[in-house]
Design a protein around this nucleic acid. Structure first.
Lengths: 221, 221
DNA sequence: GTATGATTAAAACAGTTGTTTGAGTTTGTG
DNA sequence: CACAAACTCAAACAACTGTTTTAATCATAC
């Protein structure tokens, strides 16, 4: 519950956060018990409720400590693009790169924990828990609004609904790509080595291809 | 545990399966209790263990009764394509249409339960439970092998690793698109009405755009 | 050193989990 | 009708859930 205090406790806090991040990623929210987290972190069971208040609040803190950073960096990248363009509309591919490239760079950081977190994030997009969805939506709101506005301006001739859908599809491809590479080995066998580093460039060209694809036939009304 | 028997029990069985399908979709495997399922199905708590053996086996049966059908239809569509081509290599877009279009048509069937199931399936790709992943991988193996082989033959000049990745990305975009339309409202507000019917054509043109995108720069080795 | 507050520790809390039991009811067959 | 199998039911099982409590330990300022 405390904000932050002596060095004694900040160690316990971050040990809990690290263990929780890895375990939530592996087993989901409902599948991860407090006893599992505290055992892996090497702290007492009551420490979670003492430091975070509840399991839900711990979960939110696991996200907040990284997601705030991620979305801030995304917005900074967009700011830089707009400053560079000086009022002129941006290239859609640059916008997409700013949003997804930033995330993919975080996912490539294995030692710092960014990789684990991005896998957790990818899975959490489809988490069934209500409070998780609402929390994520709030945490994303500002960043998504900024990027959608930029895309609307960059593609004035395209219906906004279509841009929304494409953005949605791109989110899905990225989430799944990050969350699923070593999770569900549906395409078993052939993925293994050397690849994670090149995931970013592969995914990015796929996303841009999808973004640039001709709009679908509206079909029979 | 029984294979199938009197009309008394097949009603109980399918009532359980229907309730479980909807609840697993809404709350996930760990988040759905047996008491919740049996209450919604209007049957006794012990009925699940009696008819299916365990919660895990019920979960698998929820998938098997629809997934077997889906993948069989996919393979039939591919068979039809190959018969029509008579030995000539297929157009990649036709292959992709056979795989994803079949799924999207199932997802468009709201009354028959296909919609609910496909949303469940989309979420389950990133389910953290071990037995779920292994079960899905087995259930998909034959179908995925057939379609990958077809894509390899249709795109002989493209490295197989690249095809694998693109297939992976396409799976992600579709899963997320189906599972997430009314789940995580990250792109809140603007999706609502009239759209679900046109999801298929929108997604398909996005997927094909991604599939046709120029290959990524291999980058620094 | 002693007092003060922050942190940790072990134990217990009430509630929920999936599963099993054993008696009851229904169903189909001779 | 009688018999046996299939099925349903309420109750209980032990194990586990997140949380709280109470006492012990630690760090720090006076």
């Amino acid at each position: 519950m405390r904000e932050d205090t002596s060095k004694h406790s900040i160690d316990t806090r971050s040990r809990i956060l690290d263990a929780a991040e890895a375990l939530f990623m592996e087993h989901g929210f409902d599948g991860t018990s407090m006893r599992l987290i505290t055992a892996q972190a090497g702290v007492n069971l009551a420490a979670i409720n003492y430091h975070f208040g509840s399991k839900e609040l711990l979960f939110q803190e696991v996200f907040r400590r990284r997601l705030t950073d991620l979305n801030r960096r995304r917005i900074e990248a967009l700011d830089a693009l707009e400053a560079e363009a000086g009022g002129a509309p941006l290239k859609p591919s640059r916008i997409v790169e700013a949003f997804f490239g930033t995330a993919l760079r975080m996912a490539a950081d294995v030692e710092g924990g960014g990789h684990t977190f991005m896998r957790l994030l990818g899975r959490t997009y489809t988490e069934p828990n209500d409070f998780v969805r609402q929390f994520l939506a709030e945490e994303y709101a500002e960043c998504v609004d900024r990027f959608l506005a930029a895309l609307y301006r960059a593609l004035p001739e395209v219906a906004r609904t279509e841009i929304l859908w494409r953005f949605h599809f791109m989110m899905g491809a990225m989430s799944y790509a990050i969350a699923g590479t070593d999770a569900l080995q549906l395409l078993a066998g052939k993925f293994d080595d050397e690849d994670p580093a090149r995931l970013a460039s592969r995914l990015m060209s796929f996303l841009l291809g999808g973004l640039r694809a001709p709009l679908a036939d509206p079909g029979p009304a």
